[in-house]
Design a protein around this nucleic acid. Structure first.
Lengths: 204, 204
DNA sequence: CATTTCCGAAACGCACGCGTATCGAAAGGT
DNA sequence: ACCTTTCGATACGCGTGCGTTTCGGAAATG
């Protein structure tokens, strides 16, 4: 009933909301999420950083979690480019892994670090974080792995999920825990070891 | 000067501190660290959980960080048993990885999750956490890897540090981020893939 | 017994963030 | 012109934890 009006324009009578304000709030949320982490993130600080009244934030988001979820969703990384046919599975893996080593990933890692403990106590937040910061990256690796199986460069009985965790796990471990460097050299070493294995050919 | 007296007994005049109180405080700190994380951990709650006055805590530790550091230090895991000669490198790795799958590790993972973001902002805390929760586990894997190299079951040019991160990274990734199961089956799959590699023998 | 220190409990002033309410001005539709 | 809603700013009462102080009693030494 009245679908046309309600769906297309919904005719709000008063002053329309400024879309720039939404962008400022989400950007400030992401900044502070990286600087302070989820627990120390306050709505007050978000409003201050965005140059906006607290009322304006609360009018749009009822609490911290939906705000953070929306901010993360707005963080979507660009779609990965397709892989040319003449690229080997090994090189394609290195290229896909290279996404972890870009400097932009450093801030993403800091955001993730500030979310880890909150995720363990809030399933809604955990789901959103995984969707934005994890699933997308895993999907890129999965495509390369399945392509490798089709090309006969990866054995068909290899568990793709285990292989994905094997490739991504060390990057997360270093970023969040050990602080060891994450660079192209590491990505290359990981891919080589995962593809070749550690055992000598004689014992296989 | 006066070394004998100062070092052995130091003769405090008044009532001696109750060592049981120290243990209660450290135990309560560990509990709350797992339940609430570092940021939400308050000295008030520690004192309450330990059945102790706030004064008693502040008399021993000046702030939250040294308290947490001491609590973690008291968490030291038992020394790993030596590896018999008749165990293959593959089985020894599976056994060493099995340490990650024990139920006790679940609480250690929760403690770690609550510390990750604080570590990124406090180097002293990060160093202590790595010493207690990371280095010890890495050392166990390092021994097995070097033993494997001596036995010719691991190629000598393999980077041991990369291999350690390759084995441990997926466990941390699953515990802290994806929530995927961490069990003996996974440990076996990881060791098999790392030792054998994903590429078919024909392309090596 | 006198002294010293430790212990648990309670209260203190302070700072911060919560979520709400109120204000005058601005920006739209009717 | 009139109405409605948004906007930034400010203030409110409330709760929580901070680090300190005070208190009465307990446990050690000399």
């Amino acid at each position: 009933m009245n679908a046309g009006v309600e769906l297309s324009a919904a005719r709000a009578p008063g002053r329309p909301r400024d879309p720039q304000v939404d962008r400022s709030i989400l950007a400030a949320t992401l900044e502070l999420l990286g600087e302070e982490g989820f627990d120390r993130l306050s709505i007050e600080a978000v409003a201050g950083r965005a140059g906006v009244g607290k009322t304006t934030v609360y009018r749009r988001w009822p609490s911290k979690i939906p705000l953070v979820v929306d901010a993360l969703t707005a963080m979507k990384s660009p779609v990965p480019s397709a892989i040319p046919d003449d690229v080997s599975t090994r090189d394609a893996l290195v290229r896909a892994m290279g996404g972890f080593t870009k400097p932009h990933e450093g801030s993403a890692a800091r955001v993730l670090a500030g979310l880890v403990d909150a995720m363990s106590r809030n399933e809604e937040l955990a789901t959103a974080v995984r969707a934005v910061l994890v699933t997308e990256r895993q999907r890129g690796l999965m495509e390369v792995i399945q392509r490798g199986k089709r090309r006969g460069e990866i054995r068909p009985e290899v568990d793709a999920h285990v292989m994905i965790d094997l490739l991504g796990g060390p990057m997360v471990l270093r970023r969040l825990i050990t602080g060891d460097p994450v660079n192209a050299r590491l990505a290359l070493a990981i891919v080589d070891l995962v593809m070749d294995g550690a055992a000598p050919a004689s014992s296989r």
